[in-house]
Amino acid sequence: MTGRLTRDDVGCWVLKSSRLPEPGWAPGTAVELTRCVRPSYRLGLMAPGDPVLLWCSGRVDPGVHATGTVTAGVQDSADGPVVGVRWALLPAPVPREALLADPVARDAEVLRMPAGSNPSWLSPAQWAVVRALSPTAART
């Protein structure tokens, strides 16, 4: 992928965090939160109903920890733009190593540029890999 993204390029949005956003969050339990996003043209591509996943970075269990749906378009807040998301915690994370081992997923932006800003994205084919690796993710 070169140049600017289009909605057709995006299978799901990726929002990154260094930790889970809710202490004591139980697998399968849904939470609605807002997440900070960096101002860019990508925010104009995000829309309610879009699939989204939570990527937790760091040394312990990096990978996909939750999947969900964008619930509200980008809004301004005192801390900058935010987007509303309804998340469901996966029973087990999809490990970073599993995505690196997959010939389609290993080129994902979140793996190539882990320090990149929110939102990141997966292509439709990369999103299909995540759903194949986590049957629970397929239902969100």
Rank of each mutant, 00 (worst) to 15 (best):
P124N: 13
V60Q: 14
D50E: 02
S57K: 08
E32N: 13
V130S: 04
D102M: 05
P21A: 14
L99F: 10
L100Q: 07
R38W: 10
L5C: 12
R131G: 04
V70W: 00
V130K: 02
P119C: 07
A115K: 07
A128H: 08
R131N: 07
A47C: 05
R59Y: 06
A78S: 15
D50R: 04
G63I: 07
G24C: 05
V14F: 11
S117A: 15
S18L: 12
P93L: 10
T136D: 08
T6A: 10
T6N: 00
W13E: 07
A26W: 04
L45M: 11
W87T: 09
P95C: 12
V82N: 09
A125K: 09
V94M: 10
V82A: 08
L20T: 07
M1R: 07
R19Y: 08
A108I: 03
P93G: 08
G80W: 02
L100K: 09
V110S: 13
G24E: 02
D107P: 02
R42I: 01
L122G: 09
G24F: 01
A125R: 13
S57N: 08
L43H: 04
M46P: 02
R59T: 14
G3A: 10
T140E: 12
S77W: 14
T29L: 01
R4P: 05
G73E: 02
W25G: 12
T136F: 04
V31M: 01
G24Y: 00
G63F: 06
V85G: 03
L54F: 01
R139L: 10
W121K: 00
D79G: 15
S120M: 12
V64F: 04
E22C: 06
E32W: 11
